[in-house]
């Protein structure tokens, strides 16, 4: 959870690197495809995300399991729908997440190449590859490939490589840039 949030904030907050227009907010639908050698079939998830600069994020999965990750003013909360109601999960690694969040705040106004976490390399006009600087993170994510849309600040897809035979691809659609997003979206599931 924390890693995804971390990466998404990196991705969205860093879009000024490749965009002429400053990103104040982004929202889009996504389809996530999880591929692993061990799986006989890829796992598909669908959802929607909302991002508001500088550090607010709502990352919501509708299927197969309805869950919401909220980040707002440095606070991170996660909810999973059980028996028709959202239940907050408080157990897993929240302290570690706060550490990660502190690191994120150093990035938010910056250029992606300035981060101490990832090295960014522009492959071509629409593709950037992020490689973790630290071995600890590299054990979890070996690299991230961002494919950008021609329109500034928006992405077509993100591929997170966990290893050679394990990756998660997110394809975005219906993206809206710099539209008003109600503040409550980042506070309540």
């Amino acid at each position: 959870m924390k890693l995804l949030g971390f990466i998404l904030l990196v991705i969205f907050s860093s879009t000024p690197l490749c965009a002429a227009q400053r990103v104040e907010s982004v929202q889009a639908d996504f389809v996530q495809e999880k591929n692993m050698a061990i799986l006989a079939r890829p796992l598909l998830s669908t959802g929607k995300f909302l991002y508001q600069a500088p550090d607010s994020l709502r990352w919501e999965y509708f299927t197969p399991l309805h869950s919401v990750l909220l980040m707002d003013n440095g606070q991170i909360r996660k909810f999973v729908k059980k028996d028709g109601q959202f239940v907050e999960e408080r157990g897993m690694g929240l302290n570690a997440m706060q550490v990660v969040m502190q690191e994120i705040t150093g990035w938010l106004d910056g250029d992606i190449t300035d981060t101490t976490t990832f090295l960014a390399k522009q492959i071509d006009a629409n593709r950037i590859v992020l490689t973790p600087r630290k071995e600890v993170l590299a054990k979890i994510i070996s690299r991230i490939e961002l494919k950008l849309l021609d329109q500034s600040g928006l992405m077509e897809s993100v591929i997170l490589y966990e290893g050679e035979d394990s990756f998660t691809k997110m394809n975005f659609s219906g993206a809206l840039l710099n539209q008003q997003i109600p503040e409550a979206s980042f506070r309540e599931p």
Binding site: L4, K34, I38, W59, S67, E89, I140, E162, S166
Partner: peptide, 26 residues
């Protein structure tokens, strides 16, 4: 406690299992 996604593959005598976060990290 926490909620994860668990995948179980039964192939003949082989058992494969994956635990991942809801977001897909293994």
């Amino acid at each position: 406690g926490a909620t994860l996604v668990g995948v179980t593959v039964l192939q003949g005598k082989k058992l494969k299992t994956v635990l991942m976060g809801v977001e897909g990290f293994v």
